[in-house]
Nucleic acid binder design. Structure first.
Length: 848
RNA sequence: GCGGUCGUGGCGGAAUUGGUAGACGCGCAGCGUUGAGGUCGCUGUUCUGUAACAGGAGUGAGGGUUCGAGUCCCUCCGACCGCACCA
């Protein structure tokens, strides 16, 4: 008996596929197309077992769809711009370009042995000038279409390194390298007008039937549509050129509970007051010494500064409210000014308790009408509450009714307007960094901002740069930066900001349809291949990447680069879970954590211990893989040890694809053993004309269930069914002819998951051609129906017995049989049942 | 802080979407194969209980709806993802 040897078998079939160009995507108008895409990786240099899971899922779909007669596009590329390349250059010299391309080469070498059905002829990296040049062309078209503009925006500034910091580089309000407290700083930056499409991006979510509900919900919340009231508070005395403060509120119904008016430290009034109020200037300066992330702002302790200015309450001119500058008010949302109603907003309440401001209830709960103390009363907008003094005359009403009534009231009397607002802000794309796509514009003293001419694209990054000085090397590059104005020809300066890497990943899926074209896309190809039929990636991209891509697809339609039908570029989305691994932890003498590699520990009856020292180990299960925690599984090691099919089989087993899966050595071993068992089934098999009805029925059921599993992204269920089917074949007493037929189907059903083994089995059993090109098996529907069913009998909801009946036995007959059942007889003890529930084909419940 | 998700045996997980909880795999136990170990094959395996049945308990905790709840609703606890310059 020959042993299955993945090490020789896998490269053999990979070569066979390559020689036959099996996975080359061709635009074949005679066939339906299918576009499978997994989110492309960042070229860190090492593939991760999470990549293996992601790409294997896509590969299963791609191979399956191909077997079903589709012309499949399954491409791969690299999300290759970004900070890690620059960080590497700063840390250890070298050039981001060399670092990136060498990483790509390494990762490609690690990926190819997985045997993925990828059309590698379409591969590109976003840092290829051929790609980002087309991105620059897109940018210019978007600029012309009015989809891009400039405005001021706040960034994290490291005053020591003299550089802009990303949010992740700000740790506890300090720069990660310098340790200096960061400051907020205003810069003029480029923006995409995504907020203009807020309504459209929100509405269109309804049509995305094959997206996870949770992703749509997260996007809807992110867009954050709200209707509220915009109105002004008049200052009692005009101050620094301001005589009113315009506020936006989503709860105008609580206006009688107003306690103060709050403005953002960056509000124009606050900034104007700084000039004459040193104390406020100091306060604002202090507040600006925090990160710009929303999380940092919201979590910061509530702080405020009383400006001394007073405003009049719009409903009662005798009622004066103080104006405070408060750190939790965002200048980006609404008007950058609010009125605070502490009784019905926890943040406002915390603030008022801290600064001893009044708390006024405006409504009370019907069942528990207690005044607010230290917990704001914030009922759902659907809950009916009792109003204390509603100025528009409400008594008992729910929040939504109150809001609507109040807006109408204000509009009728002309002191306020109902306004629809969105939380979604415009997308700032400027980055003060080298390793990104240059923004193709020129700053000319005479002509202002001038787009680069398309024939001059790409505006390529210069290679002769260094990273030994902080800041953007483009900014200080002597020749690249200086360029003649495309309009007047006089000396001018290039824009030295580059684009956010989210731009690169917002249209790569479209580029894959014509990756070598001299325009961003080619309409014929885009029309044939778009949309992506199945997109697969991590849940961490649920909001930004997907929202930006949806925006870009619309922008590309407007600028003529995508057809109208492609404005929602991803027909179906699947978000897969992580691959996790246990962490092995001990503590050193100072109680600091010490992490151990799996090979450094051994299992004991009670847990595990360090082999070298015998020290007991704490095992943390299901942890995200991280180098520093020493729990990373390298796919290259797994492929060396077991082969790609084992790794592929494992990552599809056990966990549902949307959930995390824990990598275990024992699980990998089990996968490997199973593949060996399948090979042995086929290896010594004879031939014959014999048939076997039971095996044929099992085969039909396996085809049905495995296919359903793949169609519904239940790969773990397909895997379980394949185990069962293999067990059935193994235990079957059928002759070699019948078994041969069953095993060939088994190989086909396994081929999307373990393609190398499947080819080997197929070839061994004299299958025709490559299994990759064989048509997907079809189940005989007649073999899928059972004539008899087993009905469980419950007594008072507890299973007590069961009944074998013909599938179509009339209800009355089932009833008779159920009541005649021994367990039922015993429980009834001669009495009649209170109720008898019979769900045909499902269950019987006798209520006593 | 805000938004979203998840929680089932010793472990990973299944459950036709409100109808037999624990499929399938790991681990463990017993038996067989093997010179031994591993491999391989067979049998068993939620807990409790029993000689064996019977019986009882059971899906993070508590409550509710229902003939019937892992699944629906409410409260709480824990873990994870995102928060606009990480990709």
């Amino acid at each position: 008996m020959s042993r299955y040897n993945a090490r020789t078998v896998e490269p053999k079939w990979q070569k066979a596929w390559e020689d036959a160009q099996t996975f080359l995507a061709t635009r074949d108008e005679s066939k339906p197309k299918y576009y499978v895409l997994e989110m492309f990786p960042y070229p860190s240099g090492r593939i991760h077992i999470g990549h293996v899971r992601n790409y294997t899922m896509g590969d299963v779909i791609a191979r399956y769809k191909s077997s079903c007669g589709f012309s499949v596009l399954h491409p791969m590329g690299w999300d290759a711009f970004g900070m890690p390349a620059e960080n590497a250059a700063m840390a250890s010299g070298g050039h981001p370009k060399d670092w990136t391309y060498s990483n790509i080469a390494d990762m490609r070498d690690q990926m190819k042995p997985l045997g993925l059905s990828i059309d590698w002829s379409r591969e590109f990296a976003t840092c290829d000038p051929e790609y980002y040049g087309q991105q620059q062309a897109l940018f210019l078209d978007m600029l012309e279409a009015g989809l891009v503009y400039r405005k001021n925006a706040t960034v994290n500034w490291d005053p020591v390194d003299m550089t802009v910091l990303a949010n992740e580089q700000v740790i506890d309000g300090k720069g990660w390298r310098s340790g200096a407290p960061v400051e907020r700083r205003d810069l003029t930056q480029w923006f995409f007008k995504i907020s203009d499409m807020a309504e459209e991006l929100l509405d269109a979510l309804d049509g995305l039937d094959n997206w996870p509900e949770k992703v749509k919900l997260m996007q809807a919340n992110w867009i954050g549509k709200s209707r509220g009231l915009q109105f002004s508070f008049d200052l009692t005395t005009p101050s620094v050129g301001h005589d009113e403060i315009e506020v936006y509120t989503t709860r105008p119904d609580t206006l009688m509970g107003a306690s103060f008016v709050g403005i953002s430290p960056d509000h124009p009034l606050s900034k104007a007051l700084e000039a004459e109020n040193a104390e406020l200037a100091a306060f604002n300066a202090e507040i600006r010494k925090s990160g710009t992330s929303e999380e940092a702002l919201e979590r910061a302790e509530k702080r405020g500064f009383d400006t001394g200015i007073k405003v009049k309450h719009p409903l009662n001119p005798d009622w004066e409210l103080p104006v405070w500058v408060a750190n939790f008010i965002l200048m980006d949302y609404g008007t950058g000014a609010i009125f605070a109603c502490p009784a019905h907003d926890q943040r406002d309440l915390d603030f008022c308790r801290k600064y001893d401001l009044p708390v006024i209830d405006t409504f009370l709960a019907l069942d528990n009408p207690k005044p607010v103390e230290n917990e704001a009363f914030v009922p759902p907008k659907t809950e009916v509450v009792k109003w204390i003094d509603h100025f528009a005359g409400l008594d008992e009403a729910n929040g939504q009714e109150a809001i609507d009534t109040t807006i109408d009231f204000a509009e009728q009397r002309g002191w306020g307007n109902g306004v629809t607002n969105y939380r979604l802000r415009d997308w700032g794309l400027s980055r003060q960094r080298y390793w990104g796509c240059p923004i193709p514009v020129v700053h000319c003293k005479a002509c202002g901002i001038v787009p680069e001419k398309k024939e001059n694209l790409p505006v390529a990054l210069p290679d002769d740069v260094s990273f030994d000085i902080p800041g953007n090397p483009l900014d200080r590059h002597p020749t690249w930066r200086d360029t003649p104005c495309p309009s007047c020809g006089k000396p001018a300066r290039r824009e030295t900001d580059t684009m956010d890497t989210f731009v690169d990943s917002s249209w790569y899926f479209a580029r894959f349809t014509a990756p070598r074209a001299e325009t961003p896309t080619v309409m014929e190809d885009a029309k044939y291949w778009m949309n992506v039929d199945q997109y697969i990636g991590g849940i961490e991209h649920a909001i930004l990447h997907l929202l930006y891509s949806r925006f870009f697809a619309r922008a590309m339609k407007i600028t003529g680069h995508l057809p109208e039908t492609a404005v929602e570029p991803f027909d179906a989305l699947f978000t897969q879970g992580m691959v996790t691994h246990e962490i092995y932890l001990t503590r050193d003498e100072n109680d600091r954590p010490v992490y151990h590699l799996p090979e450094e520990i051994e299992r004991t009856d009670t847990g595990a211990r360090v082999i070298a020292t015998g020290e007991p180990v704490t095992i943390i299960p299901s942890a995200k893989m991280s180098k520093s925690k020493k729990n990373v599984v390298d796919p290259v090691d797994i492929i060396d040890q077991y082969g790609a099919d084992t790794a592929r089989w494992f990552v599809l087993s056990d966990s549902p694809p949307e959930r995390d899966v824990e990598w275990t050595a024992a699980g990998a071993d089990a996968a490997w053993k199973f593949l060996g068992r399948v090979w042995r089934l086929a290896a010594d098999l004879g031939d014959g004309d014999d048939t076997n009805a039971a095996l044929e029925k099992a085969t039909a059921q396996a085809i049905h269930e495995v296919t359903m599993g793949i169609e519904t992204f239940g790969f773990n269920k397909s895997v379980a069914k394949l185990y069962e089917f293999a067990n059935t074949i193994q235990k079957s007493k059928a002759g070699p002819g019948a078994k041969r037929k069953a095993i060939k189907v088994l190989a086909q059903l396994m081929s999307p998951m373990t393609p190398h083994l499947a080819e080997e089995v197929w070839a061994h059993l004299d299958g025709e051609g490559l299994i990759a090109n064989a048509a997907w098996p079809k189940a005989d529907p007649a073999l899928l129906v059972d004539d008899m069913v087993t009905l469980p009998i419950q007594i008072n909801g507890k299973r007590r017995s069961e009944l074998q009946v013909a599938k179509d036995l009339p209800k009355e007959e089932v009833e008779k049989l159920a009541l005649a059942d021994k367990a039922v007889q015993k429980a009834l003890a001669g009495a009649a049942p209170k109720k008898l529930i019979i769900v045909p084909g499902r269950i019987i419940n006798v209520v006593i």
